[in-house]
Amino acid sequence: MWSPNQPIVAMKNVMKSYGDFDVLKGISMDIMKGEVVCIIGPSGSGKSTLIRCINGLNDIQKGSITVEGQEVHDPKLDKRLLRRKVGMVFQQYNLFPHKTALQNIIMAPVKVLKEPRADVEARARALLKKVRLEGKENSYPGELSGGQQQRVAIARSLAMRPDIMLFDEVTAALDPETVKEVLVTIKELAADGMTCILVTHEMGFAKEVADKVYFTDRGLIVEEGHPSEIFSNPKDPRTKAFLSQVL
């Protein structure tokens, strides 16, 4: 049985390959409840693949990933039960274009969790307020800016009341001036005690908010630690080279 003093997400020696290309070559990490973890690294180092394995969007060939003690890649597991606990936000927002902002948020709790519509709607309005999008309830995704769409996507995930939130390069497709509004939302979420796992290129954000930073390169974790150590005193030459390029 899992108890909150054990890692909420535990990866042990996770390996994955596409054909004969190894994306993940043995990744291990333990993430505690309430922690904010940033995964950084050069493009193509397997960051996105890694985060998508946590909710079972990608499968793995070897190793184990547990979420709240439950093995994610157990073939007997109903992945839909797992995904209720793990929310995910994507780089391209992936809102449902034929539904309004409010409907986007309401859909999953009503259809999947079968919760009463009135309760869900009240919660959805509160969430929209939380991400500072009051008044946009009836806007369609196409009528919102990238940053607004991304905040609706965050609210949509939160409406399922997950224990863990995964953010896959959520600011990478945004204009520089809208990046901030999304980061503020995530920061508030982290301050509320949500377990957040982010793949990001926002080094300033990682430095400020993360409890732990993982630097990945070519499918391996090269270096991990508190952001103050990683950013000011990187040990591995690859980390040094990467940071000197992006900072």
Partner: peptide, 21 residues
């Protein structure tokens, strides 16, 4: 396919995704 993934991450079943999204 990103629409399928978004629905999948929200725990929609395949049939629900197909008919509602």
């Amino acid at each position: 396919s990103a629409q399928w993934e978004a629905a999948e991450s929200l725990s929609f079943s395949r049939m629900q995704t197909l008919w509602q999204i």
